[in-house]
Amino acid sequence: MASQGTKRSYEQMETDGERQNATEIRASVGKMIDGIGRFYIQMCTELKLSDYEGRLIQNSLTIERMVLSAFDERRNKYLEEHPSAGKDPKKTGGPIYKRVDRKWMRELVLYDKEEIRRIWRQANNGDDATAGLTHMMIWHSNLNDTTYQRTRALVRTGMDPRMCSLMQGSTLPRRSGAAGAAVKGVGTMVMELIRMIKRGINDRNFWRGENGRKTRSAYERMCNILKGKFQTAAQRAMMDQVRESRNPGNAEIEDLIFLARSALILRGSVAHKSCLPACVYGPAVASGYDFEKEGYSLVGIDPFKLLQNSQVYSLIRPNENPAHKSQLVWMACNSAAFEDLRVLSFIRGTKVSPRGKLSTRGVQIASNENMDAMESSTLELRSRYWAIRTRSGGNTNQQRASAGQISVQPAFSVQRNLPFDKPTIMAAFTGNTEGRTSDMRAEIIRMMEGAKPEEMSFQGRGVFELSDERAANPIVPSFDMSNEGSYFFGDNAEEYDN
């Protein structure tokens, strides 16, 4: 993207840094990872977990959730003011799984939030270390993106479920800051804005008074975040219109849905970061690795190297396929839920299948599930090659597409044709070009129609051997075009429920 120079890199967003050079960025990201790792080690000690239990991804998720809940100030305040039966607002906890007599047992633990905050700050040299908290939120978000298709949420806001490739980060909490905003897809931002506008339509006082002023500035800020994701002048001009509207209503909703559809071809720039579970960072720190000293990046080879040398386990339900569970977590670790499966298959070195073909449910185990038949197995999170994460949407291309997802959002900077089903997408653009945004709409449609099938995206960008740390010898991959490109292809993934 041309304006790259004016933006802070995501590592800076990730670490609240002012302008830093590459070495400083690597050190501050490393410091953040160190903090998460030290916190995780301490929690495993508190909970008396064995090494194996500490490497269980379900335990990692519970521990991450506990610290996120302990620092969720708004919710904590709300819980104190609106006490609900049987919930102690000062405590947080969740299921911890232990191996007892050759069987997995679930144990519900409860801790004072104050105590968890103390352990977290102690692991982070006394700081609140917001960057580390956001990092864990993005890992949870990436896992949700890989596990669930947001059909219901899309339909509720009037969008087409086939636009799911635009929904990265749709389950990120509001408090995820600049680093969170960077990884949100165009569809996620559109959905947040539509929800806001709908509230304004239904509630006369939404934009009024002292609160209304705050609401208005939040609305304009979200519009600017979305505008910054678009790469064409016409899309940005249309966002200006939406932002400046005196009284946002149905016309703005129409414009936003139009823009979301246009992003299936004229893709937005959305950041991709490899955020790993805390149970990967903990053992690495415990083994003596100093992330701050060595430096770390979320968008280069580092996460690949770390996963190459990590042992992570997962509980497996009786009829689940461990290899499929591994694929789910591998995609989440690489922030690749909406990437082209052919690119992923090449990088991973084994075939990556669409969601609907995987015999696996989510990673988390519900409290009512029976533990008797639970097994555990090693997650295979290694890769054959590594590639640089991208934040450009890439230019655009036609490809055989599917009944489910009709476009992709690249996660890796790797040369390819970008699949999208042009006739299906263009069919949504018939007729409606009147109104105050008509010239911009016409211009956007013209650009979409001009998108050429034979153009290559990320020209000359390749993948790298894991021994090639400096990215000196790019390998331009070859793809098996007979395979499906979309992950949520004609899909039956479970729906995400809060």
Rank of each mutant, 00 (worst) to 15 (best):
Q4N: 01
S9W: 10
Y10K: 15
Q12H: 00
T15C: 03
A22V: 12
T23K: 00
A27N: 07
A27S: 03
V29M: 07
K31S: 05
K31L: 05
R38L: 03
Q42R: 05
L47P: 07
L47E: 07
L49C: 02
D51V: 00
Y52C: 13
E53L: 00
R55K: 03
R55N: 04
L56Y: 04
N59F: 14
E64H: 07
R65H: 07
R65T: 02
D72S: 03
R75K: 13
R75Y: 11
R75M: 08
E80P: 04
E80Q: 00
H82N: 00
K91W: 07
I96P: 02
Y97A: 11
R99G: 13
V100Q: 07
V100S: 03
V100H: 00
W104L: 02
R106M: 08
V109F: 01
L110P: 14
R117N: 04
W120L: 14
A123F: 07
A123W: 05
N125P: 00
D127K: 00
D128F: 00
T130N: 05
A131V: 04
G132C: 09
L133V: 09
H135Q: 02
H135T: 04
H135I: 07
H135W: 10
H140V: 06
N142H: 14
N142A: 13
N142D: 13
D145N: 15
D145H: 01
R150M: 05
T151F: 10
A153Q: 04
A153C: 03
L154A: 04
V155Y: 04
V155G: 03
G158Y: 00
G158N: 14
M159D: 13
P161S: 15
P161E: 12
C164Y: 12
C164R: 05
M167R: 13
T171R: 10
L172G: 07
S176C: 01
A181E: 14
G185M: 10
M189C: 06
V190E: 08
L193R: 07
I194R: 14
I197F: 13
G200R: 08
N202T: 02
D203L: 04
N205W: 12
N205E: 04
N205S: 03
N205R: 09
F206E: 13
F206W: 11
G209I: 11
T215S: 03
S217H: 01
E220L: 02
C223V: 12
N224G: 07
I225C: 15
I225G: 14
G228W: 13
K229W: 11
Q231T: 05
T232G: 06
A234G: 15
A234F: 08
R236Y: 12
A237S: 15
D240M: 12
D240R: 03
S245T: 15
P248D: 06
P248N: 07
P248H: 10
G249Y: 03
E252V: 14
L259K: 07
A260E: 14
I265K: 14
I265Y: 12
I265T: 07
I265A: 15
L266E: 10
R267M: 12
R267K: 05
G268H: 08
H272C: 08
C275G: 07
L276Y: 12
C279L: 01
V280L: 14
Y281D: 09
V285K: 04
V285M: 09
A286V: 14
S287C: 14
S287A: 10
S287E: 10
Y289C: 08
F291M: 12
E292D: 12
E294Y: 04
E294M: 05
Y296N: 14
L298G: 06
G300I: 11
I301W: 03
D302T: 02
D302Q: 01
K305Y: 04
L307D: 06
Q311N: 02
Q311I: 15
Y313W: 07
R317E: 11
P318T: 01
E320M: 10
P322D: 04
A323F: 01
H324M: 10
S326E: 11
L328W: 10
M331D: 06
N334E: 07
I347F: 04
R348L: 06
G349I: 10
T350P: 06
P354R: 00
L358T: 14
S359T: 08
V363L: 00
N370Y: 14
M371G: 06
S376F: 08
S377I: 02
T378P: 02
L379Y: 14
R384N: 00
R384S: 03
Y385C: 03
I388R: 01
I388P: 03
I388T: 03
R389E: 04
R389P: 05
T390G: 07
R391L: 05
R391A: 15
R391N: 15
R391M: 08
R391I: 09
G394C: 10
Q399S: 00
S407Q: 15
S413C: 04
M426A: 00
A428T: 15
F429N: 12
T430F: 01
G431M: 04
E434N: 01
R436G: 14
D439Q: 09
D439W: 07
A442W: 15
E443H: 10
I445A: 01
R446Q: 14
M447Y: 00
M448W: 12
G450T: 01
A451Y: 03
A451W: 05
K452F: 05
P453T: 02
P453W: 06
R461L: 06
E465W: 04
S467M: 14
D468F: 10
E469Y: 02
A472R: 08
N473M: 09
S482R: 04
N483L: 01
E484P: 14
E484Y: 08
E484M: 11
G490K: 09
D491I: 01
D491Q: 09
A493W: 10
Y496T: 11
N498T: 06
